[in-house]
Structures are given as C-alpha cells and as structure tokens.
C-alpha cells in the first residue's frame, strides 16, 4: 500500500517548480531552490523509513546511471532513489562494457540519448564532463561528480544531514579537512554552505589546499587543532592513499599524526560537534575508527541515508520540470 507521509504530501503540494533542466553545479542554485530541495528530501527521509517506500512520481521515466568512474555508493544511491520513485533504472558502466571502446564521451552520450532516457546521472573523472554532456543530449543531466569540480548531490545530502542534526545551517561553523585540492565534495560544499549562511574553514597541509583558496571567503588552517577549534561540524575528506606516499604528504602515519581526526584533536571542537565524511573512509589514515563509529558524534551513517532522500528530491524536481515541458 502506498502511504505517503503527511509531511511529504505537504511539500509535494507546494507550488514550487524547479526551473532548471539539469543539476550540474551548486552555483546554478539559489537559496530558495535549495530550501525547497531540502524540505522535499526531508519528506523522503520519512518515506524511506516506512515499510512501503515506493511512489510513482517518476512512473514511466527512465533513469540511466552512467558512471565512467566506479562508485558503488553513489551509483546505488541514485539507483534506489530512482526505483523508489517508480522510474526504470539502467546502470551503464562504460569502462567495463563495450560502449566506450574508442568512443568519445560525446559519442557515448549521443548513443545513450537515442535510447530516450529522461534522466542521465553522470560520474566522470574530468572536470566539466557533465556540463559538456548536458550540451549534447535532450534529457536532464545530473552531475554525480565531475573530476575535481563538483559533486552537487553530495553537498545537498550533507546540508540535509546538518540541518537535521542542528535544526539550521546558518551560523554553523564547518571545518572541511584533508585533501581539499582534489575534492569535488569540498568545492560543492563550500559553495552550498556559504550560500546557506555557514562559516567555512579549510584545514589541511598546504600541498592539499587549492591555489588562491583564500579568495573563497574561507579561513585556511594548516594546524588542525587551530582549524577545528570551536567548530560545529568537522567534515573529513577522503585522501587517496597513493597521494600520501611522499607525493602530497610524506607518509600515512605522518598524515594521521597531523591531519587525522582522533579524539584528542576533536576535543578542540565545540562540545556538540558532529563529524562527517563522504566515504569511503580510510580508517586510521584520515579518521580514527573510534571517532567514526561513535554514533553520538558521527553523522556518517546519516549521510548515507540522507543521500537517497536528497537524490530523490533532485530527481523529483527535474522530472516535474520535464512534465511541464
């Protein structure tokens, strides 16, 4: 039986129409759109906790997951989001299939576009890939991570997690720690959190902070204790292990010593601090298991749950826009 939670019904009945065809970058959004997406996602959280989780908002729609980079987590999150909304979901992994042998990104996109999907969820290793693709297809494109540029649904789910934990985002102080340089998660979060009125700090060794990041209206700290002092949220980033072998940091143990999140460093944050991580974690490298697994502190499990709801909100909004076309 389909029983829609009353909160969700209320949001769905709002006369909010999402004006964009694609979901590519946080910088395309405004505060009102984000607030509506978060309200909608909140409603989907309630739905997802019910026995019967299925709606038909996307009935008849086809969602195609096109992941040029492997990501079990994000891909299944989008897959579940699509299925719970009633869409048909197809997963394409061009790397392992014959689709992209010698084919360019655009050829692949045009080929898939000819199969008439309504929503194309794309993950690619190059910055700007989702935007490029959106210019060549007729369906809606969702950026599920493009190189080191953006991962906007991650920022949305992070904002949802924070809003639920603190009741607000404005005024929160958020320390984003670790490999900011290579992180699309960081770029999307900086833009979204600042839009919503949070104060953002970046913490990491200078080798992992992007050039000219001081022009982003963020405080930059190379000492983690200073960087997380008094903050409400510590958002850890994943650091690829191969970058820690003398490349961006001298060794794993040195990195953990100075930039890994453990109880001792966390004690510098506000007493009510919550810890986040986009996953997958390198335990004992950027974060101590002791912290990661402490449910009174860690929001990491919540983030995964919020991921499905946030993506349902994005897909619903884009699909409503398609209905209006």
């Amino acid at each position: 039986m389909n029983t829609t939670p009353s909160g969700l019904n209320e949001v769905l009945q709002r006369t909010f129409s999402f004006p964009k065809r694609h979901f590519l970058s946080v910088t395309d959004l405004n505060e009102v759109e984000v607030a509506n997406l978060l309200d909608l996602a909140d409603g989907f959280v309630a739905l997802n906790r019910q026995h019967s989780k299925k709606l038909d908002l996307l009935k008849g729609r086809t969602l195609m997951n096109l992941f040029f980079e492997n990501s079990t987590r994000t891909q299944s999150s989008f897959e579940l989001a699509g299925k719970r909304l009633g869409a048909d979901v197809v997963n394409m992994s061009p790397r392992s299939s014959s689709i992209s042998k010698g084919e360019t990104l655009i050829d692949t996109a045009v080929t898939l576009n000819a199969m008439q999907p309504d929503l194309l969820v794309v993950r690619h290793a190059s910055s700007g890939a989702a935007s490029l693709l959106s210019q060549k297809v007729t369906c809606s494109v969702v950026n599920a991570g493009d190189g080191q540029h953006e991962h906007p649904t991650q920022a949305l789910l992070d904002a949802l997690s924070m809003r639920r934990a603190f009741g607000r985002i404005a005024g929160l102080s958020v320390a984003i720690c670790g490999d900011v340089l290579h992180s699309r998660v960081a770029r999307s979060n900086i833009a979204l959190l600042q839009m919503l009125g949070a104060e953002v700090r970046l913490v990491g060794p200078p080798t992992l902070i992007p050039a000219a990041a001081d022009r982003w209206n963020v405080a930059i700290h190379h000492d983690m204790r200073d960087g997380i002092k008094g903050c409400d949220v510590v958002m850890m980033l994943r650091l690829q292990l191969e970058r820690m072998d003398g490349v961006m940091a001298p060794s794993q143990r040195e990195y953990f010593r100075f930039f890994g999140l453990d109880r001792e460093k966390l004690a510098f944050a506000a007493p009510h601090v919550r810890v986040m991580h986009p996953g997958p974690m390198n335990r004992g490298v950027e974060i101590d298991s002791d912290v990661a697994d402490d449910l009174s502190v860690s929001l990491i499990q919540d983030q995964v749950e919020m991921g499905v709801a946030a993506r349902m909100a994005v897909l619903t909004s884009l699909s409503a826009r398609l209905d209006n076309d």
Binding site: Q148, P210, A211
Partner: peptide, 15 residues
C-alpha cells in the same frame, strides 16, 4: 593557469 578560477573549476593547473 593556477589561480582562483582553475581551483574553482577543478582544473589541473600550472603556476
């Protein structure tokens, strides 16, 4: 070229 723009766009850059 390295700078605010390349950092924001996530492009590999040269100083």
């Amino acid at each position: 070229s390295e700078g605010e723009f390349a950092s924001r766009m996530g492009l590999p850059a040269v100083p």
